[in-house]
């Protein structure tokens, strides 16, 4: 079991960030929401670790009130 990484874990963060943003280009709001939902499930399965996913869910919820 590992913990949710909060320090940088990507070799080129700008690339990854733009990759995800670009995926939404020219999508309607509805399509974007669908894309995000599929992405979340794919990544969650890849991560596989329940504790990490729980921590990510909590962190994402917390970011809403920031």
């Amino acid at each position: 079991m590992s913990t949710l990484k909060s320090d940088l874990n990507l070799a080129s963060p700008d690339d990854i960030y733009n990759l995800i943003v670009d995926a939404h280009k020219s999508l309607s709001r509805e399509q974007s929401e669908k894309l995000n939902a599929a992405l979340v499930l794919l990544l969650a399965n890849h991560v596989g670790d329940e504790a990490v996913i729980r921590a990510a869910v909590a962190a994402a919820r917390k970011s809403l009130s920031a």
Binding site: E33, K34, A37, L41, L42
Partner: peptide, 13 residues
């Protein structure tokens, strides 16, 4: 709505 979104995402994946 988000529950349906995720449900449908699971279905299409």
């Amino acid at each position: 709505p988000a529950a349906r979104l995720l449900r449908d995402a699971a279905l299409s994946l």
